[in-house]
Design a protein around this nucleic acid. Structure first.
Lengths: 229, 229
DNA sequence: CGCCGTCTTGACTCGCCTCAACCTCGGTGG
DNA sequence: CCACCGAGGTTGAGGCGAGTCAAGACGGCG
């Protein structure tokens, strides 16, 4: 029996409506785990034997093509469920989850998913809302990739990151985990070279300020204009 | 009270586990409707007041960009639920559903979704499986658009159509509803010109045979090779 | 200090979009 | 019955966005 604090879950949407006793039950069967930066939580194609809640850190969900290229499907920030293949009736994970920084997770065996859904009020509804949000994001990305130029796509990607994992700093909003040009190119279907050129240009215009593995958006408004939405 | 036949639903996955009496209940609150080709069943952004089952025909789900371009998110074939925004906790439709040919639908008020989920065994599970399949398809398209050239993407799109709406004919497999080069370009993020050139080339190599609004894949294997998967 | 991961920048190339002209087929109305 | 028209399709010419190739700088870590 582990001694996690109930406050961990109290503000996570899928658990918000629950009483302390129920949260206790849930925590008692949860397995906490810490992951180093750059390690995988689960991998594409493997049996989806557990589902996860990200307590702290950031996760990059990627798919790998037959010829070894990586494509980032989405980013997960803390407080979100992930690896919930069970919710959509799949028995394998459809993608690989890599830690973008140091991460803290809770996880449960997949067979408990059904229990949670039936036993805990609001759990299903709230969980499916996050699925809905992700479907929406994927839809938007498809539209972007189909209609927009690289510059606009990269701008959109940066804005998404800022919204999902932005931290206010003195000169703007910083993306709150280490991120490389390569990472951004994998989100937008382009090359690290092109991303580098774009960021250089934007830095000259005062839209962003970046260092190695670090990006601060200093003029979000201008970025929105570039994104063409 | 309408007099639809129970056999309509008996073989649709979400209803398969139900008893005749339950199917009767469901049919009794369903509204059947016929749509002409090229009309919209529901539109992006409107309140998702109903959810649908496609009994016959084919539906094109599209999103429109701010500047009027259309992007096809997916195709729905008969026997599938669609417009199930409710399942993911959304109150508006995220896309527009256009009929690709003449269509027959059943629909129910969205407020019944919850009833169905709680009352009918297997309904939730099977419904979420179709969501899972669509998420999977979207994921694949994102990977394609991010990594593959136009020719491969168009090949993939054709193969998907053949799998989802293929009809065996003497010389191959025909896509079972009217489809234009423009439609294909909207699925793949390219232009009708490029699609036309590709189809012409493929016709010369004996991979497809096409007429106006009609495409027959005569050599699927070759197409798979081109698709690069 | 040397190595590796990250980032930058120039030069070249080419896939595909754009622009443009024209063809074919069906439907419609005079 | 035929002229007309619009939707769908084809094909060529040309240009540009962005990928590829290449070389090197910078910073951190063992």
């Amino acid at each position: 029996m582990n001694n996690l604090d109930e406050s961990l879950l109290a503000n996570i949407p899928p658990f918000r409506k629950l009483q302390l006793g129920q949260i206790r039950e849930i925590l008692d069967c949860a397995t906490p785990k810490r992951f180093e930066v750059g390690t995988s939580v689960f991998e594409e194609g493997l049996d989806a034997d557990r589902f996860y809640l990200l307590l702290d850190g950031h996760i990059r969900v990627i798919r790998t093509t037959p010829d070894g290229e990586q494509v980032t499907a989405l980013y997960i920030s803390s407080g979100q469920l992930f690896g919930i293949a069970a919710a959509l009736g799949r028995s394998q994970y459809p993608a690989t989850a890599l830690t973008a920084d140091e991460c803290l997770t809770l996880s449960w065996p997949t067979r408990l998913w059904q229990d949670f859904v039936t036993k805990y009020d609001g759990f299903a509804t709230e969980s499916y809302k996050v699925v809905g949000a992700r479907v929406d994001e994927m839809n938007n990305r498809i539209v972007e990739m189909a209609t927009q130029q690289v510059e606009q796509r990269v701008a959109c990607a940066l804005l998404r990151l800022v919204n999902q994992a932005g931290k206010k700093v003195s000169h703007g909003v910083e993306i709150d985990f280490p991120i490389t040009r390569q990472n951004i190119s994998e989100m937008t279907g382009t090359t690290l070279h092109t991303v580098s050129r774009l960021l250089s240009a934007w830095e000259k215009s005062g839209i962003v300020a970046s260092e190695r593995r670090k990006i601060v958006v200093t003029n979000p408004h201008q970025l929105v204009l570039l994104s063409g939405t």
